[in-house]
Nucleic acid binder design. Structure first.
Length: 402
DNA sequence: TCTGGGGTCCTAGGACCC
DNA sequence: TCTGGGGTCCTAGGACCC
């Protein structure tokens, strides 16, 4: 009997870096990292090639968002500070991030998948889940392979993504989202990994617990302290023991996950809960000494969130701020207003009231403004002249349709 | 040479109401 | 005077993910 469900997880390979390589093919095969601000734009040399900045001597606060596989071989990876990366891979080419371009390719690859399999859950700019269970041919047996049908479908999807974008992706196919997320990583880049429950012990149990989506640095460390390093070792624990250590909810989930169990559906549309804008300063600012600069940034953040809300057609009732201090301690404050709003002045005013509730003796590294408890904006006629975007089509979240 | 920006979800305590 | 539950909303922090 074939499994009840076939869920695919599709992950674009080194997405940002790969999009940049389409623009700068002369960098193919070289160590390249994406990150930092606007200061290191490539300079055209007139012959179709460019002069690029390298990591050597980089100063500033950025981190790597994506590194090519050649750069990863030098020991740098996403999330690593650029100054630290510069010490490890000074010769690596450094390119600035261009989210516009990545969003364009994101829409293209998702559309290419949707042509063949429309039941898609968005998981951000470079990955999706796809429910293939009810796709024609997915349950077919091909050349005595009971998984042949779904394997062929996945290959079609990979080819269509490549045709539409020039980019490669990796796909994991299993009976659920948890295992597919793990499987898509097993044969990166350009992978296609199909697992059934029969493969659990051989392919999943040897992996470190941190490979499981939902086990982060904290839970990983707590498990390590209990002598649990691999998914298989986690699966040796009783549910009761895990509930005792991690609580009913998370402990119970750890038990299920270790046995490859996950019934979550592929969710094709969800409403946003909050929108926010934040910025990390080049140097830490002091509330009193840098009052003018801080105030200007604060107002700009409020205006940006308000504009984001209006563009997407939402209003929100909870307005809040986020501060990160020089010692990296983070605090938030929020308040709920009477009427949901997307008005920049209202957001700025409420955010200002929140700021008054924070002790500002330490220097500030990051400032953010957030609007939550979102609702769809009321029809334009009731509030003013602003035209409102219509609701996104089914199967596409605001991210995709933007 | 520390650690970006944009999200979601969960927990937990207190207020307030029935 | 002392004693209940249950439910919802609000706020703050934290884990985790891309």
């Amino acid at each position: 009997m074939p499994p009840r469900r076939w869920i695919a997880h599709l992950d674009m390979d080194a997405f940002y870096a790969s999009v940049e390589l389409l623009r700068y093919p002369e960098l193919l095969g070289q160590p390249v990292v994406i990150g930092g601000g606007r200061r290191h734009q490539p300079v055209p040399l007139g012959d179709g090639t460019h002069r690029f900045a390298t990591l050597a001597g980089y100063t500033g606060r950025g981190v790597i968002t994506t590194a090519t596989y050649a750069a990863r071989d030098l020991g740098v990876h996403s999330g690593m500070g650029l100054m630290k990366s510069a010490l490890r891979a000074p010769q690596a080419v450094l390119l600035p991030v261009d989210f516009e371009q990545y969003r364009l390719y994101s829409r293209r690859f998702k559309a290419a998948v949707a042509e063949l399999a429309p039941v898609i859950e968005d998981r951000g700019i470079d990955e999706i889940y796809i429910d293939l269970s009810d796709q024609p041919g997915a349950q077919d047996c091909v050349a005595h392979d009971p998984c042949g049908g779904v394997r062929a479908l996945a290959l079609d999807i990979k080819n269509n993504v490549k045709r539409a974008t020039g980019l490669s992706c990796s796909i994991g196919i299993t009976p659920n989202k948890l295992l597919s997320k793990i499987a898509s990583e097993l044969d990166k880049p350009d992978g296609l990994t199909l697992l059934t429950m029969d493969d659990l012990a051989e392919r999943v149990w040897p992996l470190p617990v941190r490979k499981v989506n939902g086990i982060g640095p904290k839970a990983g460390a707590r498990l390590a302290a209990l002598g649990i390093e691999t998914v298989g070792e986690l699966a040796l624990q009783t549910r009761e023991a895990l509930v005792l250590s991690f609580g009913k909810s998370y402990g119970g989930w750890l038990f299920e996950a270790s046995h490859g169990l996950d019934e979550r559906p592929v969710v094709t549309f969800s409403e946003p809960v909050s929108m926010s804008r934040e910025t990390t300063f080049e140097r830490d600012l002091h509330a009193r000494r840098d009052k003018a600069e801080l105030g200007a940034v604060f107002t700009e953040l409020a205006q940006q969130v308000a504009a984001d809300l209006q563009k997407k057609g939402y209003v929100g009732r909870t307005i809040g701020i986020k501060l990160r201090f020089e010692d990296f301690k983070t605090v938030t404050r929020d308040m709920t207003v009477e009427t949901a709003t997307a008005d920049p002045a209202t957001v700025r005013l409420a955010a200002g009231l929140c700021l008054k509730r924070v002790d500002l003796s330490r220097r500030i590294r990051l400032l953010g403004v957030r609007v939550g408890a979102l609702q769809r904006a009321p029809p334009a006629g009731l509030v003013g002249l602003r035209p409102l975007p219509s609701a996104p089509p089914l199967h596409l979240t605001p991210e995709v349709s933007s």
